[in-house]
Design a protein around this nucleic acid. Sequence first.
DNA 1: TTGTAAGCGTTATCAG
DNA 2: CTGATAACGCTTACAA
Lengths: 344, 344
Amino acid sequence: MRDVAVRAGVSLKTVSRVINGEAGVAAATAAKVGEAIAELGFRRNDLARSLRQGRTSSTLGLVIEDVANPFYSAIAQAVEAEARERGYMVITGSCEEDPERERELIGALLRRRVDALLLVPASREHSYLRRELADGTPVVFLDRPPEGLEADCVLLDNVGGARAATEHLLAQGHERIALVAGPSELYTAGARLAGYREALAAAGLPRNHELVRVGSRDAAQAEAAVRDLLALPAGRRPTALFTGDNRNTVGALRALRAHGPGAATGAGSGSSAARPIALVGFDDFELAELLAVPTTVVRHDSHLMGRHAATLAFERLDGVERPPRTVVVPTALVARGSGEVPPP
Amino acid sequence: MRDVAVRAGVSLKTVSRVINGEAGVAAATAAKVGEAIAELGFRRNDLARSLRQGRTSSTLGLVIEDVANPFYSAIAQAVEAEARERGYMVITGSCEEDPERERELIGALLRRRVDALLLVPASREHSYLRRELADGTPVVFLDRPPEGLEADCVLLDNVGGARAATEHLLAQGHERIALVAGPSELYTAGARLAGYREALAAAGLPRNHELVRVGSRDAAQAEAAVRDLLALPAGRRPTALFTGDNRNTVGALRALRAHGPGAATGAGSGSSAARPIALVGFDDFELAELLAVPTTVVRHDSHLMGRHAATLAFERLDGVERPPRTVVVPTALVARGSGEVPPP
DNA sequence: TTGTAAGCGTTATCAG
DNA sequence: CTGATAACGCTTACAA
């Protein structure tokens, strides 16, 4: 900037004014400065800029589990879109369900002085964020609530969605409905397990531990879990499956395919053990309607979750003072076929 | 930091040493400083830190078209993983095929002094980056080459992949093979069009403009294009489709489904017009094997593209001087059924 | 082992 | 309308 000032024969402050389009600069002066800037290829240093006290970095920190998972990339997309409208950029990090990585990432983001932090927490203890929150850095939790801390939060209606899915299967006459989901320590998996149980209890069905397969963290583990269920003797084998998230649904679909062609279609003339199994999955996914088994899902707007989270953060940055708020995004059952298969 | 120094009764420099784990601090002093840091909840300001000359921001800038597209989110994931290993973070922006947004994004990233820039360019003129490149900021192009500039670049074998796809369909006996792809000004779409044409020419088939549908930028447009093709009179209607990217494949699958149940399976007993149409798509996608029409695709490793790009950038940051290099990532045809349907 | 002073690139204050 | 100077939070060179 000094070089520009020298070249244009003005002071630093004048260059600053031109750069920032401040009023009170003679057109001729501005032109000279503009030339110097162009000739020198000068670019304002926004890092230095945000050093002055009271200034912001115009950057949001976003911590998710995995950018490659469409659920999270939709959130990232929405957050970025909201951020852009306000002239913010987003630094994103994936922590892959590792609490330690979560802390590292958050540390790195805070050291970079992000103006707000949006996160899908992998850990279950967030009191270590209390100080930043008190110091005025907005922290918004996504998909999973804060623990040991009061903060803004955007959640899905997990219990309601899971209950609806299970009720849907019950309504078809199923009684042996298995749940295949992530580890129940995971907030969402736990809540969906609860919804599943609520629906079964309301229907007067006893708990059947054999049919609850929680713990699968990826599609491969889910596939194995479903294979396991399918290997049960006929009288104990589930006639329907509720999968707790998109990874588990993918795994289940793969296992069901292996089990018999078109698990839920009547079309299959596959292995002797093959019997159509009903399936409802939590999380919608692209092409679900074009699968050999058009898949019935609990749909929700993950994009909206990201938008809400960004909005909550920006409200705080705008100085709005209010107690922490939790926004719940609704879910809806979308029947496509796989969930409308009756028991044998 | 000054507060910490005061509280610990030491100088700024000593605090700095402790923070950065520098040697030459008495254990007792370090402990006192550590306490003060904990009590005050102090966090080093990495923005200020990177201000000193010679220091880096330890940040990479990544510009892609759309985080929500699995092709790009795989790249983002890989870049982030490589960055993490080196203690870098990534600021990602989506420009949605808008050249103006590309420039804005790049400007914002450069102003934030990212140490390197990785980008999937939306524009076709990149000489405006010449100065940064000359000034030592590594710039790596992804998926599409630089124009008006010499820079490192990671590409797919677009021509080879497209040729293989087309040859595969030709080998089944198809002669009316349509191409459904993005606008040919788009580098990848253009290259795939070229590969498609090469294969047809090699087979001695004349060009048939009616069957070349380039211009669809999203799944909806692709769907419309395919519907259009399907509406052609029987003798001119294509018997096979080659779709140029994952968005076009999704659109085509939807149109084919509407056209007749199981477009490529013999299973369909749909509308009177329904005839099985072969399909090969560029880009693999999750669950392709579980579709009603298991989809034959040209597969590649988009994750690897991100890794290569990050590696090229880090090599430059490590001071390796060499002429710009272009890495080409191979493609492979994966036959799943939809591409192995013979002509009627 | 510890401290002092200068400087990184910008903006804010206040004076001209 | 323009400029001098201090300050932002940190690191480096150099002393002590």
